[in-house]
């Protein structure tokens, strides 16, 4: 389970909406299954069906997470027109190229569907070796 404060969840939703019609992305720092800091990030290759974090921003954020005493516990992105479920591209990109070794095995992949703009749907998943499993999101 991944615990997210209501105010942090609103930051994630606002960032996903601000990216429309393109996908939006970001990272979640925290510990013990609770999000402590949301990092809305730039989509370096924006498209309605694609995101790629800016490499330099990614490095800076990962450093900030470490230096804040947190861990990278989540990665979020939006699906402006798709379901809140990892796409085949999401799954392929979660692995080291050419392998089934997960790049960020401890991170929950949170996907925000904006198919219904008025009613976003957010779900969390772990993507481990060859397996996608839902991780419950608890907004507190």
């Amino acid at each position: 389970m991944l615990n997210i404060k209501r105010s942090d969840f609103e930051v994630i939703l606002a960032h996903c909406r601000s990216g429309l019609p393109n996908e939006a992305c970001g990272m979640l720092g925290g510990r013990n299954g609770s999000v402590e800091k949301v990092y809305p990030m730039r989509n370096a290759k924006p498209g309605p069906d694609y995101y790629e974090m800016d490499a330099e921003e990614q490095f800076r954020v990962m450093k900030d997470i470490r230096e804040s005493g947190f861990e990278l516990i989540g990665l979020f992105h939006s699906h402006p027109t798709g379901q809140a479920y990892p796409s085949s591209v999401d799954i392929a990109q979660a692995y080291w190229p050419g392998t089934e070794l997960p790049n960020y095995p401890d991170a929950v992949y949170m996907i925000v569907s904006l198919m219904d703009r008025a009613r976003p749907v957010a779900r969390g998943f772990s993507i481990e070796e060859g397996r996608v499993q839902e991780v419950k999101l608890s907004v507190i």
Binding site: D49, Y50, D90, Q93, Y104
Partner: peptide, 18 residues
């Protein structure tokens, strides 16, 4: 030196279209 996998993805060829 830091070796860091990029973070990318997207809804292309999405579950919904599958």
């Amino acid at each position: 030196i830091s070796i860091v996998p990029a973070i990318a993805g997207g809804n292309w060829n999405s579950t919904s279209s599958q």
